[in-house]
Amino acid sequence: MQRSKKILLVSHCILNQNTVIEDEARAEGAVLSAVEWAMKAGYGFLQLPCPEFTFLGLNRPSMTYEQYNTPEYRQHCREILKPVLIQAEDYMKNDYEIVGLLGIQSSPSCDPTRGIFMEELAAMFDEKGITLNTLWYLPNTSEPEFKSNVHFIK
């Protein structure tokens, strides 16, 4: 069977909206537009753990970047990212490409440009010399739009 050998790191809630706080879900289960787009591109998924769910549980309050920006939460993010980093390294050792990151715009944790979890992920990957060449993020609207080296999935 043919493989693309292209892996996309995916925020947990893109594949499971059931972990999103009440009234913030964008879909009933997975975000279909993002999943279909990635599947058509031939990407395999490496689903990231949900840091907010694993830190505060399902019935957590809505919180901001500033509220999550604590040493305890950052350490929690690093701990749950260790297995992801090991998996990514193993893929790369076996000639797979980590093509990028699919995150959630305006999430205090998973916004690729300003999310606590994504900041820690980027730092840990950088410490290992792994570059994520392309970022994707998921705003609250509908159709795909592509701009330069950053892909926006809406």
Rank of each mutant, 00 (worst) to 15 (best):
P108W: 09
Y96H: 14
L138Q: 13
V99I: 15
A122I: 11
S109D: 06
I104W: 01
P139Q: 02
Q105W: 09
A123K: 12
T141S: 13
S107E: 04
L135D: 02
P108S: 04
W136I: 10
M124P: 05
F117A: 08
Y96A: 02
M124R: 04
S109Q: 03
A122F: 12
P83F: 04
E143I: 12
E145Y: 10
Y137H: 09
D90E: 13
F117K: 02
P83Y: 04
L121I: 05
V99P: 00
F125M: 14
L135C: 07
T141V: 12
P139G: 00
G129E: 08
M118G: 00
K147Q: 13
E127H: 07
E127V: 01
E119R: 04
F125P: 01
G129L: 09
T134E: 15
L135T: 02
V99C: 12
N140T: 14
L81R: 07
N140M: 13
M92Y: 02
I98S: 08
Y91V: 07
I86W: 00
W136Q: 06
T131A: 11
Y137K: 10
P83Q: 05
L121C: 06
I98E: 06
P83N: 05
L138A: 06
A88F: 02
V99W: 01
L135G: 03
Q87A: 15
L132D: 01
S109M: 05
E119G: 00
E143Q: 14
M92P: 00
Y96P: 02
P112H: 11
G103R: 01
A122M: 14
R114M: 10
T134A: 11
Q87L: 11
W136E: 10
I116E: 08
R114V: 10
A122K: 15
M118C: 12
I104K: 06
T113M: 11
D95P: 07
T113I: 08
D111R: 06
T113H: 14
S106M: 15
D90F: 04
T113R: 14
L102C: 08
K147F: 10
D111Q: 06
P144G: 02
M118F: 13
S109C: 09
L132A: 07
I116C: 05
P108H: 05
E97Y: 00
E143C: 09
I98K: 07
S107V: 08
K93I: 03
N140V: 14
S106H: 15
K128H: 14
L132Y: 05
E145P: 00
S109T: 13
K147I: 15
I98M: 12
L121Y: 04
M124I: 01
I86A: 09
L135Y: 11
M118S: 03
G103P: 01
Q105F: 07
D90K: 12
Q87P: 01
A122Y: 09
M92W: 04
L81P: 03
F125I: 03
G100A: 01
F125T: 14
Y137V: 00
R114F: 10
F125V: 08
Q105M: 14
P144S: 03
G115A: 05
T141I: 12
L101H: 05
C110W: 09
Y91S: 04
